[in-house]
Design a protein around this nucleic acid. Structure first.
Length: 671
RNA sequence: GACCGCUUAGCUCAGUCGGUAGAGCAACUGACUUUUAAUCAGUAGGUCGAGGGUUCGAAUCCCUCAGCGGUCACCA
């Protein structure tokens, strides 16, 4: 009896023992050495898994056929040393049976190159095993794509939530539920698009880059367009552009399905970029929109589920028309007993709301108080589809006043499962009233409300040209998909949800010496004209934990003086004599922008400082010790400290914009 | 932003009172050859998120930091 020497065993498997990645690479090499192509260009696949399962559903157990098929897909499981292979394609799964009776030695030998996760093509005949599993009896096996990454545990899949979204391609392979949810999303979007087209509406695309915020109340993303040297907002809503198209008469009905961007918190119901459909219909009012939304949503639910009654979050929800319609004030009265329609002033409204336990801002007007009460007391109770109608005019600057009730507008929001899914109104088309509404928004904005809208002068001009009586509506697609797929998290219904950038894994770029800063050309006042001021910049990073504004300003000042006086040369900084509009000369002004950013704490500054050191970028820092009385004390204090104990208040940097962005790209502006 | 929780092998997770670091899957070497999470025998795989502290001794207790998650607040 021969016994394998343990030492030999370890030597044989030395390079690959325990390391799935290395094992796969070894097999890849062996496969190439045997003259095979691990990544062939094409494969002649004739059959899909689910079609075969269907075609042969009546094939009896332990029956062979002579029907030849070829399938292709990913290896999901192997049993009996590769005799049984589960292959998954986009339609489903089928078992492949590899037996020496039906395969040549060469074909059989390919099994040893195979791993879970590889994509293979299989040619063979159909049979059903004695135990009842439909299988392809393989005659030929083809490696179509060698996989080098190990797949997650086959029983548990990927549970790390972050990795599921970051590596969606792995999630999709392993989790049937993820595949189904995202496929359903596509079905819903395509169904809605078809519905709108069938109704005669014209699909349009309007800009993502907006000069003026409007159409919704939200904080925006800001981006810079170099060629125009101008900041743009990523749009928060397409509303004002779409109504311009109705003015232009391109069609009586237009709609757009596209992304909106809102610079606000992430949660299980909010992604910073989300998909909305907005539609506008000339000669209609908000009553027509209620009918439209009920029918559209009802038909979509039926299309996806085959019924208009479905289960969401373990509750039965009935989408059959008609949906409940109730005014916002009536609903608030039902839940709180307060009749806001008889309350005249904002003060009285605030007092009453506070008594009912609803928190309201001191600056809140009557409409905002009503809205706060609704949000807190009513919204979450609206499980069955409900149109909440007739909002206060203060919270609806683009909606037309109610034809009978002076304080309200003709607006409604549709709620399901306690979430708002749609918002619609009869559009305000009187340019004079629109101007007043905008001005109210502007003064709210000036009073500190970042989400109040801006005055869009051109939009008013468009209204002056004449917007026909029009009704419009918007619906959050992601929310609708969440409802129809019963997904508790918005990330489940977005292919690649927004995640924090993964800085830890980012490759450090090779350091560039300071000498890479170009030499200044000439010392004259036109110099700034030849300088691309987007190329270089100053960045000041401020410790966010520092609360004393005066000290921060002081530190920034010291640090910048240090930077320009010591670390960077005049020609680097491109100092010019700047001539202002009155002809006055301001000497030694740098043409480069200064960006002030906020770091979480001193530690984050320390890291950026280290990177600046590594990259040889000019910088100066300002530490807590420098806030002490005399310079002697400062030096003494600093000397007692180890590097990791130094608390940084401010770090100033100068350099190429691209380099600085690598260091500080994840920081937000200091406010 | 505030609070709570998590971080241990490639993946999923145990780890008791502070006393030598564990399992299943995946991988590797074999056996077996009509399996269904195949089975059996064996092998290898760890800076216990990072740093500091307490202790004779720390995955375990304390502090700081980082990443992630959850809840709450604003927004759809």
């Amino acid at each position: 009896m021969t016994q394998t020497h343990p030492k030999n065993q370890t030597q044989n498997s030395n390079s690959t023992a325990g390391d799935p990645r290395a094992a796969k690479e070894a097999k890849l090499k062996a496969l190439i050495d045997s003259g095979l192509d691990p990544y062939p260009h094409v494969y002649d696949r004739t059959d899909m898994a689910d079609a075969l399962q269907d075609t042969y559903k009546d094939l009896a157990d332990d029956t062979e056929t002579k029907d030849t098929v070829s399938v292709a897909g990913r290896v999901m499981a192997m049993r009996n040393s590769g005799m049984f292979i589960d292959v998954m394609d986009t339609s489903g799964r089928i078992q492949v049976f590899c037996h020496k009776q039906s395969m040549s030695e060469d074909e059989l030998a390919k099994l040893k190159f195979l791993d879970l996760g590889d994509i293979i093509g299989v040619k063979g005949t159909m049979r059903r095993t004695p135990r009842g599993e439909l299988s392809v009896r393989a005659t030929e096996l083809h490696m179509l794509t060698k996989s080098l990454q190990p797949l997650p545990d086959k029983h548990h899949g990927l549970t790390d939530v972050e990795q599921r979204y970051r590596q969606r391609y792995v999630d999709l392979i392993v989790n049937e539920e993820s595949r189904e949810t995202l496929r359903t999303r596509s079905k819903i979007v395509s169904f809605i698009r078809r519905y709108m087209e069938d109704a005669g509406a014209l699909e349009v695309e309007t800009p993502m880059l907006h000069e003026i915020l409007g159409g919704a109340s939200a904080k925006p993303f800001v981006t810079h367009y170099n060629a125009l040297d101008h900041d743009f907002y990523l749009r928060i809503a397409p509303e004002l552009k779409l109504k311009r198209l109705i003015v232009g008469g391109i069609a009586d009905s237009v709609f757009e399905i596209n992304r909106n961007f809102r610079n606000e918190g992430v949660s299980i119901k909010h992604n910073p970029e989300f998909t909305m459909i907005e539609g506008y219909h000339a000669f209609k009012d908000y009553n027509d929109m209620m009918d439209l939304i009920e029918d559209l949503v009802g038909q979509t639910v039926e299309h996806i589920h085959g019924s208009r009654v479905i289960t969401i979050d373990e509750q039965r929800v009935d989408f059959n028309s008609p949906w409940k319609r109730a005014s916002m004030c009536d609903l608030v009265q039902d839940k709180t007993g307060i009749d806001f329609m008889v309350i005249e002033t904002a003060e009285e409204a605030q007092k009453t709301a506070l008594k009912a336990g609803v928190h309201v801002e001191r600056t809140a007007n009557w409409g905002q108080v009503v809205e706060a009460c609704f949000d807190e007391k009513v919204e979450h109770t609206l499980i069955q589809p409900t149109h909440v109608i007739n909002h206060p005019f203060e919270i609806s600057p683009l909606a037309k006043g109610h034809r009978d009730i002076p304080r309200l507008v003709e607006r409604f929001e549709s709620f399901v499962n306690g979430w708002e899914i749609a918002n619609a109104f009869t559009e305000l088309n009187d340019p004079a009233i629109q101007r007043v509404r905008f001005e109210e928004q502007v003064s709210q904005r000036e009073a500190g409300d970042e989400e109040a809208q801006m005055l869009d002068e051109d939009y008013i001009t468009a209204l002056e040209v004449g917007l026909p009586p029009t009704a419009g509506w918007g619906m959050g697609i992601d929310r609708l998909v969440m409802l129809l797929t019963d997904s508790p998290n918005i990330r489940d219904v977005i292919c690649f949800p927004t995640l924090r950038p993964n800085f830890a894994k980012a490759e450090p770029s090779p350091s560039k010496p300071l000498s890479s800063v170009p030499e200044a050309k000439e010392e004259n006042n036109d110099r700034y004209l030849t300088v691309d001021d987007s190329e270089y910049r100053f960045v000041v990073v401020v410790n966010g934990k520092e609360t004393d504004t005066g000290r921060v300003m002081n530190a920034i000042g010291h640090s910048m003086v240090g930077l320009s006086g010591r670390e960077a040369k005049d020609q680097d900084l491109c100092l010019i004599n700047y001539e202002d509009i009155d002809g006055n000369i301001h000497p030694s002004v740098s043409h480069y922008p200064v960006i002030i950013l906020k770091a979480k704490n001193g530690n984050q500054i320390r890291k950026i400082r280290q990177q600046a050191l590594d990259k040889n970028l000019p910088f100066t820092d300002f530490t807590k010790d420098m806030q002490l009385g005399s310079s002697k004390e400062q030096v003494a204090s600093l000397k007692t400290k180890k590097d990791e104990e130094v608390e940084y208040v401010v770090l100033s940097l100068f350099g190429k914009t691209s380099n600085l962005k690598e260091l500080t790209g994840k920081l937000s502006l200091y406010k």
